[in-house]
Amino acid sequence: MKIIYLLEILLIIFLIFIVISKNNLKLIVFFSASSLVSASIYLFLDSPDLALAEVAIGSAIIPLIFIIAISKQRKFLVINNTTFDNERIEYCIYDILKEFTDIYNLKLEIQDSEYVELYGIFRSKNVDLVIEKKKDKYILKGKKTSILMNKLEDMTRGKKDIKVVKVIEGETYD
């Protein structure tokens, strides 16, 4: 009777930690711990079938899938679509992108211009950003669903010659 109240308070504390934590790996550890606590709550409420499934799936399989998905995001692939080559672009945008990728521990990679699809399932490469030039203005195109684009928009707010465009996710019909 008293242990279950303590477990519920512990569960609420873990869930608040999940919401406010900024580090992704810490978040996964808190998620796994919260599902363990909820499994023990199920056990005290006389449903051991549900507790077995929760222990196996909630605290072992889903955190591993999250860890693999996070460790995949190590590169930040940028496609250079302007007429300049890679050395010329360094002076204007390279510093901002370098500072941006250092915050998230990503590896910056700039490739030369080619036609790529930014969205859709059938794209051949996992492109994050496309640089274009239009009337003395550099346009950075990125996906709208990515959280990284909000940070990039904040960083380039003061610059006059850089504009960030967010592309809405969708499928192409051709």
Binding site: D49, A53, A56, I61, L64
Partner: peptide, 19 residues
């Protein structure tokens, strides 16, 4: 307590440790 789904999930975690 248990059954097919729970036991299958536990078998999957066993193969997960081979990672």
């Amino acid at each position: 307590p248990g059954g097919g789904f729970q036991g299958g999930a536990i078998l999957a975690t066993a193969f997960l440790t081979t990672y």
